[in-house]
Amino acid sequence: METKKHALLSASSSHKWLNHGPIALLEAMVPEEESSEAAEQGTAAHAMAEHFLKLKLNQASVLEDSIYHDEDMERYCQDYANFVVEHKESLGENTLLFIEQRLDFSPYVPEGFGTGDAVLISDKILHLIDFKYGRYYVNPENNTQLLLYALGALNLVDSIYDIEEVRMTIYQPRIGNVSTWTMDTGPILEWANGELKVKAMQAYKGEGNLEYGDWLGMTKIKAISKDRAKHHLELRKYQLREAHLLNDEEMAEVLSHVDDLVRWGKDVKEFAQKQAVENDKHYPGFKLVEGRSSRRYVNVKSVEQRAAEQGIQDIYQHSLLPLTKLESKLGKEKFHDIFGDLITKPLGEPTLVSESDGRPEIVKHDVNADFK
């Protein structure tokens, strides 16, 4: 029997199905999306991290080439390998290290399993280290993905070790986030045998509540969610049937919709166009047409040869590499050493955002107040 590649109730999506039961089955009804560049980069980084960790432990390993491999990734992954080995040594010479270990937490979550990047097991301590290559900050505290991995690891060594303490670390080198959350085993098992089992079974059956939130824009049903549509269609109450204007409170409510409303419109259009192109889907009032295109050379070398034959010169243009590409080419440290004093980062344009946004508010200085 072939092993399923993805669990319906995966650890990585647990923050969704634990709070919104029906989402797992709803997403399962939507075809798999093409892998994004960020996801492929993350996969390449995980492969390199595993490779360097095995080499550090004198284990055989072969790393396949990837277009995403660069000097920064190599440095980050070597640092990760050193970090894991240092923590292994700190727990004692008898500490076990499992690399890319399948972790089965199905006693609590139907068909639940995942993969632990690095799992350290000592006499009394379990230490999970989760390698993240993204730039979006991940907090280990109350992180349900790590808690499910912990349950899988405890299940793995239950008959051999009497684990009392679980350490869960997020290792996120690109933003300098290396943080650990520690829990006693007791509370984890209490949560697993109570709340987790109940909510996991609800999610497995597609039961429970699903409420609108910005999180819907990160799901596979982002374009076809009626809950998302219903939320934004509430704006119809502001249709201007009479000659009056929105007041400040009404304007604030409209503003609260804007960011996700724009994303929703884009998601719907992309989904519908893909259905029309790939599945010959027809939507009333819409049709497929040929989009704009630009002229291009059939063969660059032939153009160069023809130009030389005709005595035409100055057919090339030269420009400085974009800052990020030059930095990637040289590496951050070398780039900073050579060009650091020639780089500036101007203030960004003022942007209106929700008060929940973590960025500091711009405080405008009243020049007239200086003369009072």
Rank of each mutant, 00 (worst) to 15 (best):
N19E: 11
V198I: 10
E93A: 12
E141D: 13
M218H: 14
L342F: 14
L63P: 01
A24Y: 03
L26G: 02
S61I: 00
A11Q: 04
A276K: 07
V363Y: 06
V30Y: 03
Y108R: 01
R263L: 13
I224H: 01
L347F: 11
D260F: 04
Q59S: 10
Q239R: 12
F286Q: 09
P140A: 07
W17V: 05
Y149N: 03
K205N: 14
H232L: 09
L216P: 00
R296W: 11
R228E: 04
R174S: 15
A369W: 07
L8R: 07
T219E: 01
G206R: 06
F52S: 00
T219M: 03
I221P: 00
D130A: 07
D123T: 15
K54L: 15
K205P: 01
A47T: 00
V363R: 12
S14W: 02
I67E: 03
Y108E: 03
I175F: 13
L255C: 14
N299W: 02
E327N: 14
E37Y: 06
R359I: 09
E37R: 10
T169P: 07
R296D: 11
A47F: 01
E290M: 05
R295F: 12
I338R: 09
T144G: 05
S66P: 01
L235I: 08
Q172E: 02
L189T: 01
L18K: 00
D370H: 12
D158P: 00
A45Y: 00
S13E: 03
P346Q: 10
Y297K: 08
V138Q: 06
D280H: 12
H282W: 04
R75V: 08
E211T: 13
V62I: 15
E111T: 12
A150E: 01
K334P: 01
V30E: 12
V178S: 12
D259G: 10
F335R: 06
H231Y: 12
F371M: 09
R228Y: 04
E165D: 10
I125F: 03
L120K: 04
G208A: 07
M168F: 04
I315N: 10
E111S: 14
L147C: 08
